[in-house]
């Protein structure tokens, strides 16, 4: 273990032997400890390599394979019993056929575009609803603020599936919403099994993801900046747009990324609230996999989805500090 540059081995020049020994001992302890901290990483590192990195390599591999009537339902399969020829045969069997198949089918392109469309529209709506909510909460008294934050977090912890299910009873053709509309003499609306229903479900499910990062930024904002802006003659409205909003940009970015990325691949909402013609990639992967048993196609769609999300995912990595409220 090399010497830790942060810790001087020897403080001062009046080094009598005992203190010198102690200093060296101290730095050796630190060194050992750093070694231990590095050992701490080993277990989670190996775990993630096995259960996270390796599986993605397999998805990539499978996307270059073909579907076959076999168990598991794809070919070629790596057969190492023939040594290197097995590996060579395997590599020769891989190609871009599955991707070509996806590219030639309009349905996949539509699913891709509509996934981005659904996620984009829902993110915009989330921002419009979430920003005033976060700003309002940030302006409250501290005790009330805590209670309100908890109120926003609580649904995030409550089962996603159950929250979507709850909407079904509300939105059903003879459901509670239409009963209420009927009572006050308004015409009934159809939202369940429509694209509007999917947007509603996405906005509902991801609202906490938008509000919390926005709140984290707005709550920290220095009130005196607004006062200064107003002293300099800005109206409250202009001060808000010229000071508050630009300063909250990291929170906006975090909220947008945290909701947009998972929404693109969302499965439960389009499946339960969308109609049979609602196309989204998460659902496409699910159907290819479970209904059609076309594993290479499911993998290829997953790879395309990943490639699309790589840039936002890297942005999330970079801005992690701002993401965590």
């Amino acid at each position: 273990m090399t010497h830790d540059p942060l810790i001087p081995a020897k403080a001062g020049t009046q080094a009598e032997p005992a203190a010198k020994r102690k200093g060296r001992l101290g730095s050796r302890l630190r060194g050992n400890e750093r070694g231990k901290n590095n050992l701490a990483v080993l277990a989670p590192y190996l775990w993630l390599a096995l259960f996270f990195a390796l599986p993605f390599a397999l998805v990539a591999k499978l996307s270059f394979s073909h579907s076959a009537l076999a168990i598991p339902p794809y070919a070629p399969r790596l057969d190492l019993s023939h040594g290197l020829t097995g590996l060579a045969d395997f590599l020769r069997g891989l190609d871009l056929a599955t991707y070509r198949r996806l590219a030639s089918d309009r349905l996949y392109l539509l699913a891709y575009l509509s996934s981005l469309g659904f996620a984009g529209l829902s993110t915009a709506i989330l921002l419009v609803i979430g920003y005033p909510m976060a700003y309002g909460i940030a302006r409250c008294r501290p005790r009330l603020r805590q209670a309100l934050v908890l109120a926003v977090i609580l649904p995030f912890w409550t089962s996603f599936l159950i929250r979507i299910y709850a909407w079904i009873a509300v939105l059903k053709p003879a459901g509670l919403l239409n009963q209420a509309l009927h009572l006050i003499g308004l015409p009934s609306v159809t939202l369940l099994d429509t694209n509007a229903g999917v947007v509603l479900g996405l906005v509902y499910a991801y609202l906490p993801f938008m509000v919390l990062p926005l709140y984290a930024v707005l709550e920290r904002q220095d009130e005196s900046l607004i006062e200064a802006a107003q002293d300099l003659g800005l109206t409250p409205r202009r001060a808000f747009w010229r000071v508050t909003v630009p300063l909250s940009a990291p929170g906006v970015a975090a909220g947008v990324l945290l909701s947009f990325i998972p929404m693109v691949g969302e499965f439960v909402v389009p499946d339960l609230m969308g109609g049979s013609r609602t196309l989204m990639l998460g659902r496409t992967i699910w159907t290819e996999f479970f209904a059609d048993r076309d594993w290479p196609a499911a993998s290829a769609v997953a790879m395309v989805l990943l490639a699309t999300l790589v840039v936002p995912l890297v942005l999330v990595q970079r801005r992690r500090a701002a993401l965590l409220p």
């Binding site: 259960f51 599986p55 998805v59 998972p262 691949g265 499965f267 998460g282 499911a298």
Partner: peptide, 12 residues
């Protein structure tokens, strides 16, 4: 944290 679950599930 943000990876779509469908992809993770398929990979696993």
């Amino acid at each position: 944290l943000v990876m779509p679950e469908v992809i993770l599930g398929l990979a696993l």
